[in-house]
Design a protein around this nucleic acid. Sequence first.
DNA 1: TTAATTTCGGACAAATTTATCCTTAATTAG
DNA 2: CTAATTAAGGATAAATTTGTCCGAAATTAA
Lengths: 140, 140
Amino acid sequence: MFSRACEYAIKIMIYIAANEQEGKRTGLKEVTEAISSPEAFTAKILQQLVKNDLLLSFRGPSGGFILNDKKEIRLHDIVVAIDGTHLLNDCILGLNECSSANPCPVHDKFLLVKNQLTESLLSTRVNDEALLKGKNSLKN
Amino acid sequence: MFSRACEYAIKIMIYIAANEQEGKRTGLKEVTEAISSPEAFTAKILQQLVKNDLLLSFRGPSGGFILNDKKEIRLHDIVVAIDGTHLLNDCILGLNECSSANPCPVHDKFLLVKNQLTESLLSTRVNDEALLKGKNSLKN
DNA sequence: TTAATTTCGGACAAATTTATCCTTAATTAG
DNA sequence: CTAATTAAGGATAAATTTGTCCGAAATTAA
């Protein structure tokens, strides 16, 4: 459904959010360990999340990442930042001309699914109680 | 959502089903033209659909493909044949240990979406009236 | 039987995604 | 100031997906 990079990104954000709840800033190595992801690749994803204003970064000893809580970050923001809007906006068969006015054969069948998905992503914030509780279930 | 190959596969199956409604067998070149897909790649996908018993193939002049209508073919069959069951069965964050007994942080949030998706794929047959009408909307 | 047509299938190539390596820049603590 | 620490970022490599090429096998029609 999501790219591997996006899966990591969601885990990263949940972990950092949970850490922040306890007043802690999170470093690359720590999050890499927490979600068992490849370190260098994880670094790239963290960079993207910073560029997209979802995280703030700090270099040097005691550096690391925190949420950019100017915004209430939703799963939707993360998915769009990493995978773009294709999954949510484009035709499920990859057709350029597909729209409700000019639908592809399966357009209507998948409207509900896509709306449901978009709604789930929009309504879920990374600092939801329910998500933070699961911060130890992010390995493997 | 689906791989490019799977998008092609769905279009292929709908097109062949529509052709069959008119008693016509469908060849590689025709379907390639109808859905504007790369010919050699499309040939590989057709082979996979044959191997997975969704299509029957015939060589030689006036050869081509028809549905293996021993089964009522659903979108679900096509997706599983080409992309496997990962999308439908696996954890959305890629976790091995995720289940309703031991859920990842977003497990519950996506249950509904995944069930909706599975239901849509299971309940849609390639020879549905609604799909066949759109057989000319499969280009680009 | 021969030639044309069409799928089959293996090898290969291009593009994209995932992942690694290494140097630089910034920051902190001593 | 110096040394240690941590993120930034460019280059490259590995893996996967997408796409191509071409000869072989099967079938049909003349």
